[in-house]
Design a protein around this nucleic acid. Structure first.
Lengths: 131, 131
DNA sequence: ATCGCTCTTGACGTTGACGTAAAGAGCGTC
DNA sequence: GACGCTCTTTACGTCAACGTCAAGAGCGAT
């Protein structure tokens, strides 16, 4: 194994483009729980994976509360009733994400149309300037 | 034409599931500009179309400031320099949306995997219960 | 040992997107 | 003509997600 099994807070901020404040805030909110060497935080690959999940969740519009809920659902120590509940939650997330894809496609369509219009106007302006 | 050409604030709140406060707030922010009959707001189909754009923008993660920027870009009264600038902004939006789609697909993949795991555990639990 | 660096913990500040409460105008109806 | 309803403006409140100090601990290099 050549991959480092731990990371400092500074390494992760640089890797993901977030501030240390952000990572500490996520910890306060119970989203990650790095170990400590003295007072210094030591992030494991598992912490890092959770951070990736958190940031991706954020980019697709989930609140930290929703992300926390999802992360908690990954604890694989539950009975059948809890599993069924978790499954339901997952299906809900899938539905909202699918709907979001539709919204995004609609937005993309309009933006592409806008660009086409702009290009048409620009080329007509150039045509006039060439007269 | 059978489509009503105007709407009250109440009609639109019900149609889109937002509060009147929200629509007035968007007006304060310069995103929409309904006419008035006396003091009462009268929304046109154009206002309604803008509201659809605003809400969709919000769902895909744009801030109101960004949405306002996009809406303002639809004023077709600009010179070539402004058009080029607008075009650039549109391309930027497209890039972020494309990236978002990738994030969504990643999230969907993980959620589907999670569901598969849950189903596996559930069926193994049922198999044990049947012994 | 002290400089400089990164790390830490509070605690208050900020921004965006509204919520909410107060006070009033118009208007159909009983 | 008073009641109830929806509409309005004004203004302060709130919540999430951090930012921004302030004050200090550890620690390798000079």
């Amino acid at each position: 194994m050549t991959t480092p099994r731990t990371y400092t807070i500074r390494q992760l901020t640089k890797e993901f483009g977030v501030t240390a404040r952000t990572l500490r805030f996520y910890e306060d909110e119970g989203l990650i729980a790095p170990e400590r060497r003295g007072q210094t935080r030591i992030y494991s690959t598992r912490d890092r994976a959770r951070i990736i999940l958190i940031l991706r969740g954020r980019r697709v519009g989930f609140s930290l509360a929703e992300i926390r809920e999802i992360l908690e659902l990954y604890r694989h120590d539950d009975g059948a009733a809890q599993l069924v509940h978790t499954r339901k939650k997952f299906v809900e997330r899938i539905d909202t994400l699918e709907r979001q894809k539709i919204d995004i496609d609609e937005s993309l369509k309009q933006l592409h149309q806008g660009i086409a219009e702009i290009d048409a106007r620009l080329s007509s302006q150039r045509a006039q300037a060439a007269e």
